[in-house]
């Protein structure tokens, strides 16, 4: 596909922004830890989308490389986050994040 495709970068970035806000809202509202982690994934994906779209606008590989690094981060973070989730479930018997509030005061 060697045709020039005109997809405005701003639209792509706008999409990324909207997805990011939705993810942010999810983090703030949801009480279940799994749902919070999923919302974090949404936010990371939105950032990755922004990188790729911006890189494609300049026809450089840098955007995709940054996307790969974001992917790496997301993977590591999910691994550790789910481990923590298992510990919380073991200790409190529930997945309610409001139960883990001993750092109060």
């Amino acid at each position: 596909m060697t045709e020039a495709v005109v997809i405005p970068m701003e639209h792509g970035l706008l999409l990324a922004a909207i997805l990011f806000s939705i993810g942010l809202g999810g983090v703030m509202v949801r009480r279940n830890i799994i749902l919070i982690l999923m919302s974090l994934e949404i936010m990371l994906n939105a950032c990755a989308l922004a990188f790729v779209v911006a890189g494609a606008r300049w026809a450089e590989a840098d955007g995709q490389i940054m996307f790969m690094l974001v992917l790496t981060i997301a993977a590591a973070e999910v691994a550790v986050g789910l481990g923590l989730l298992l510990q919380v479930h073991r200790r409190f018997g529930t997945l309610d994040i409001d139960r883990a509030n001993r750092m109060r005061g």
Partner: peptide, 14 residues
């Protein structure tokens, strides 16, 4: 302000 609630902290950060 230190409620221990993660969600409160997230909201404050935003």
């Amino acid at each position: 302000t230190q409620t221990g609630q993660l969600r409160t902290y997230a909201a404050v950060m935003v």
